[in-house]
Design a protein around this nucleic acid. Structure first.
Length: 293
DNA sequence: CATGCCCCCTGCACGC
DNA sequence: TGCGTGCAGGGGGCAT
């Protein structure tokens, strides 16, 4: 499911409940996620205080006292919900996923004070890991990630250098988390449409012109940053599984220009094209061949 | 190293 | 209604 904006939405929802909270107990109801839950998972979490709730790419990072970090990845279908919490005196959370109550609720955290945080993931492509804080940056899952697209180090100079020599297409290059970390299928399609760049274009053509990044690269960086920022403000996109942690829907899906809009007229001003769907690397790409070059 | 393909798993929409 | 098929916000692992 979730790309950077959805994960960031979850992080922001968790923050007021989880930061500073103590985990009274943890239930590992179904340990066979993408990888088995770590050894002694529940015991290592019991009594821990959550010092901070961060995010790197599509990973949620909960810093625990005692020196370990809980890494959570939501995979394709993972979601997190909070129940029994009060934020500013008001109860938060009532939504339950479809299906039988408790179905696919693989991990449950019981916080001191009575709130529960539940990880639900039908497809079980998600994961949870515990890693010593000082080994976080060198962890195999994180060490090769490219820059955060909303961070200071992601700019046209960087992207031009990162795409130099890449013979693959732009779609695949932007999905490559080593180039830029956090984009997925939706936001790559949307960013390329905003930048009027074809997903089929060879990535290296965005690299440099006369020693510097070309204007296409500048536009792409702007498009990526804009679409992510707008999506975060909208609470992410709710297609199937993604909810905010209190059960509310995100609404950025209403702002998609091309994703899942095959056959619709291209929304670019003065463009007479239509959105088409092609398959790249086995995944759907939506774009307008008229205004995206 | 870079690239492309397969696979993990469940649920749902679709056509017959 | 009951299939069977294809598709879904990801990404590790492998062969080439």
């Amino acid at each position: 499911m979730p790309e950077l904006p959805e994960v960031e939405t979850v992080r922001r929802g968790l923050l007021p409940v989880l930061q500073g909270a103590v985990i009274e107990s943890a239930e590992a109801r179904r340990p066979d996620l993408r990888w088995p839950l770590p050894d002694s998972f529940a015991e290592r979490l019991t009594g821990r205080r959550v010092e901070a709730v961060g995010r790197r790419a599509k990973y949620l990072l909960a810093d625990l006292d005692g020196g370990e970090v809980l890494i959570v990845h939501l995979g394709m279908s993972g979601s997190i919900r909070i129940e029994g919490a009060k934020v500013k005196g008001r109860p938060a959370g009532f939504y339950h996923p479809r299906g039988a109550p408790g179905a696919h609720d693989h991990v449950v955290f019981h916080l001191a004070g009575g709130a529960t945080i539940t990880f639900n993931d039908p497809r079980r492509f998600g994961a949870m890991l515990l890693v010593p804080y000082d080994q976080l940056d060198s962890h195999p899952l994180l060490r090769s990630l490219g820059p955060e697209p909303l961070g200071n180090t992601f700019h046209a100079d960087y992207l031009a250098q990162a795409l130099a020599g890449r013979r693959t297409n732009l779609k695949a290059a932007l999905l490559d988390q080593k180039i830029v970390a956090g984009l997925g299928n939706i936001y790559v399609c949307e960013a390329l449409h905003r930048a009027h760049l074809s997903p089929r274009r060879i990535a290296s053509t965005l690299a440099t012109t006369a020693g510097g990044p070309n204007s296409r690269t500048e536009k792409l960086v702007t498009a990526i940053r804009d679409v992510l920022r707008e999506a975060i403000l909208a609470g992410g996109s709710s297609l199937r599984d993604h909810r905010q942690v209190n059960g509310e829907l995100g609404y950025f899906q209403h702002n998609f220009k091309v994703y899942d809009r095959e056959g619709e007229p291209c929304p670019t001003r003065h463009c007479k094209g239509h959105v088409q769907r092609i398959v790249q690397s086995g995944r759907s790409t939506f774009f307008c061949a008229t205004c995206q070059r």
